[in-house]
């Protein structure tokens, strides 16, 4: 019997990255500024975490020219959504005290 913690995703597990992915999972695309304010981190801290998620193939960064400004928005890739769903499922199992095969922990 394996413990559900073995199914946790190492990239998503970091608290900031977990919040970023959770925020992105609820939408198709979210503006960088909105994610920054929602997660309550600085621009640079968010950029750093987004780079890690992008390298893992979980997040896509979109840059759009709006007048003279560049608007940056983020979206989850299919892999990112799947990884987040698996991670949340593992967290639910841990919270419920379930093992991988559905057995309850004693």
């Amino acid at each position: 019997m394996s413990h559900p913690r073995s199914r946790l995703d190492e990239v998503i597990h970091s608290p900031v990255r977990f919040s970023v992915v959770a925020a992105l999972a609820a939408a198709d695309r979210v503006e960088f500024r909105f994610v920054r304010d929602t997660v309550e981190v600085s621009d640079s801290a968010l950029s750093k975490q987004v780079s890690v998620l992008e390298e893992a193939g979980y997040v896509k960064v979109h840059k759009t020219a709006v007048g003279r400004r560049t608007r940056t928005s983020l979206s989850l890739t299919r892999e990112g959504r799947d990884a987040f769903a698996r991670h949340v499922e593992a967290l639910r199992d841990i919270a419920a005290g379930r093992l991988a095969d559905g057995a309850e922990q004693v």
């Binding site: 913690r5 608290p15 977990f18 959770a22 925020a23 992105l24 999972a25 609820a26 967290l91 919270a95």
Partner: peptide, 21 residues
């Protein structure tokens, strides 16, 4: 990851989800 930490993370995910939605 312990049970409390998992519950805390799930609550955090719920808050992020509600805010974005």
């Amino acid at each position: 990851v312990g049970r409390e930490e998992a519950l805390g993370a799930l609550e955090q995910a719920e808050a992020m989800d509600a805010h974005t939605r």
